[in-house]
């Protein structure tokens, strides 16, 4: 059974483990899309799985596992993001904020990747999550819609706007340089 299809039955622990395994990579993308930082994706997914496993009775037969787990991951990821922001405010107040140092000698790809990462951070949470799900794990719009509990058209619109904004933000990097005229 696909995690995106409505499940007619209640979830047993064994069924949960099977469906979780089938969707863990997608759930990781949702977590990273919400927090905007891949460093905490695994922690959030694991915590969400253990929380959900303890609340199997809250799963409603007739709904999809992906929607149910997606909601739990988003909730925990939002909590995590809020905590990180509060912590950052505290660190800023202490004047101890760590600013990433430039990487001398970094190659062009590394530099471009950093620009892409910065541009991704400029997107809204929904745009970022939809774009990662579509681009990185190549979900269909209907699957994104089921996972994030939104219409497929909305998911498509988020991806389209995210791509447009990314291109605009990265115009300098993606536009081929013109050779200087002699």
């Amino acid at each position: 059974m696909s995690p995106y299809d409505p499940s007619p039955d209640r979830l047993t622990p064994a069924r949960f483990a099977t469906l979780f395994r089938a969707s863990s990579r997608v759930l990781w993308c949702v977590a990273v899309g919400v927090v905007g930082d891949r460093a905490h994706g695994e922690d959030i997914v694991q915590e969400a799985a253990l929380v959900a496993l303890g609340k199997l009775d809250t799963f409603r037969p007739g709904t999809s596992f992906a929607a149910w787990m997606g909601q739990t991951v988003r909730y925990l990821a939002l909590n995590h993001r809020r905590k990180v922001r509060r912590r950052q405010v505290a660190l800023d107040a202490e004047g101890t904020r760590l600013v990433p140092a430039g990487l001398p000698g970094a190659d062009a790809q590394t530099s471009f990747d950093r620009s892409v990462s910065n541009a991704l951070a400029e997107l809204s949470e929904s745009q970022r999550t939809c774009l990662l799900l579509k681009t990185v794990v190549e979900l269909e719009y209907a699957e994104i819609a089921a996972l994030l509990e939104m219409p497929a058209g909305t998911a498509m619109s988020h991806v389209s706007r995210a791509r447009a904004k990314m291109r605009a933000l990265l115009e300098v990097e993606t536009t081929p340089r013109k050779e200087a005229m002699p």
């Binding site: 622990p13 064994a14 949960f16 483990a17 979780f20 395994r21 863990s24 990579r25 990781w28 993308c29 990273v32 891949r38 994706g41 695994e42 997914v45 694991q46 799985a49 253990l50 496993l53 790809q109 471009f112 990747d113 892409v116 990462s117 991704l120 774009l131 990662l132 681009t135 990185v136 794990v137 791509r163 990314m166 291109r167 990265l170 990097e173 993606t174």
Partner: peptide, 27 residues
């Protein structure tokens, strides 16, 4: 190039350890 960069940077890591722990808890 943007999609290629996103795939390079945001491909999910191996989640086998988490899947195994969840499987054990489920069992």
């Amino acid at each position: 190039p943007i999609a290629a960069s996103l795939k390079r940077q945001f491909s999910p890591p191996s989640l086998q350890a988490i899947e195994a722990r969840v499987a054990a808890e489920a069992a």
